[in-house]
């Protein structure tokens, strides 16, 4: 619990420092004009006011809904695709050998530059953002599942075969659970990247979503709204990450944790 207090204290200190340094009433020591700090870095009270306005006025809900939906769709579709492809290639060495250079090339490509193409293909609506998010999520999950399938302990595999497992039972009872621990390791990264796909897509061209709001505010130099949007996205990324962590702790009870025994 002491850690929690320290964390809250740190947050408070950061906000206080930010507030003091950007307050126009405090004399500027770097900028020639006391208003400039607020112009560039925003003011925490105004940012909070903006957030409150959004939620009280209800203006934010449709935008937030769009961004979250894009993120979730990209996350789920990318994960499912990554797991399916990872299992397949992990179990089919010939196909994996043939596809290897193509997969490497696709993974090495900076996929954000696909965003303009997706907009041409799928329009300015949600589909293009989801497509971008999927390309980001898919490869992370895919590589982890692929690795997980190939690193199944040979002894566990041979043992399951000796116990009479059929090919399907091996997939269900050995490969899948073994790959699952790798999947969860990758999901924490993928949640963040699904958000990146949605927001970058919105930022580049759209008519709704939090990325769109940020883009609009930036156009009129409303730095407080930009920061409010960033904070909002961060908050929801944390919530999604927490949800993944919660599911992980439910499904992965069998995994040893470093903290299983604590010294008293």
């Amino acid at each position: 619990m002491k850690v929690r207090y320290a964390q809250l204290l740190l947050l408070f200190a950061l906000l206080l420092g930010w507030g003091l340094l950007t307050d126009p009433r405090v004399p500027a020591f770097y900028f020639d004009n006391p208003d400039k700090a607020a112009f560039f870095f925003g003011e925490p009270l105004k940012v909070l006011g903006r957030l409150a306005n959004w939620f009280v006025g209800g203006e934010i809900y449709p935008h937030l809904w769009v961004t979250l939906l894009e993120t979730l769709l990209a996350f789920v579709l990318g994960t499912v695709g990554g797991i399916a492809m990872g299992l397949w290639l992990g179990l089919a060495p010939t196909a994996a050998a043939i596809l290897d250079p193509y997969i490497k090339a696709l993974n090495a490509m900076p996929r954000v530059i696909l965003a303009p193409i997706f907009m041409v293909w799928f329009g300015l609506g949600m589909a293009s953002k989801v497509a971008l998010g999927i390309t980001l999520v898919f490869f992370i999950v895919f590589f982890n599942v692929y690795q997980g399938v190939r690193e199944v302990s040979p002894a566990v595999l041979a043992n399951a075969r000796m116990l009479g497992a059929s090919q399907r039972q091996l997939l269900r009872h050995v490969y899948m659970p073994s790959a699952l621990s790798w999947v969860f390791a990758s999901l924490h990264n993928s949640v963040g990247l699904a958000f990146v796909g949605a927001v970058v897509g919105e930022y580049l061209g759209s008519a709704e979503g939090v990325g769109y709001l940020i883009h609009q505010a930036e156009g009129v130099f409303d730095i407080n709204t930009v920061i409010a949007g960033i904070l909002l996205l961060t908050l929801f990324a944390l919530v999604l990450d927490g949800a993944v962590g919660w599911i992980e702790s439910r499904l992965m009870v069998w995994q040893p944790h470093a903290g299983d025994t604590t010294q008293l």
């Binding site: 302990s153 002894a155 566990v156 000796m162 069998w254």
Partner: peptide, 20 residues
């Protein structure tokens, strides 16, 4: 194929770690 009449006990740990 696999010897269905035989049980095998391995030198290495071969239990499935995800099963109780």
């Amino acid at each position: 194929g696999i010897n269905r009449k035989a049980g095998y006990m391995f030198q290495a740990d071969a239990l499935m770690p995800w099963r109780s």
